[in-house]
């Protein structure tokens, strides 16, 4: 049962990465990227790296998201590709 969950998480990870890269709206892409980060954190925890998973969750979903939103707020929201 354990490895099926992990496999599913990996699959979501890849799909989230692809979606984040293909969205035209950068704000939506950032939200998808946060999902991506959260999946990474879950995978880390499932592999027993609690410290790293905790950090990745705090950083990837929190700080990086905030920075992305701040930078997009300062620049532009649309992307050509």
């Amino acid at each position: 049962m354990h490895w099926q969950i992990e496999f599913l998480l990996f699959a979501i990870l890849i799909v989230a990465a692809l979606i984040a890269l293909n969205l035209r709206n950068l704000l939506a892409a950032v939200v998808t990227l946060t999902i991506f980060s959260f999946m990474v954190a879950l995978l880390m925890i499932s592999m027993g790296a609690v410290d790293v998973g905790f950090t990745e969750a705090v950083v990837g979903a929190g700080i990086v998201g905030i920075y992305f939103v701040a930078a997009i707020f300062k620049t532009t929201r649309k992307s050509e590709d």
Binding site: A20, V64, T75, S79, D81
Partner: peptide, 16 residues
């Protein structure tokens, strides 16, 4: 990707 923000996203994926 041509948009710089998308490049940054790619960067974060490589690091992850």
């Amino acid at each position: 990707k041509r948009n710089l923000m998308k490049k940054i996203m790619g960067m974060s994926m490589i690091q992850s």
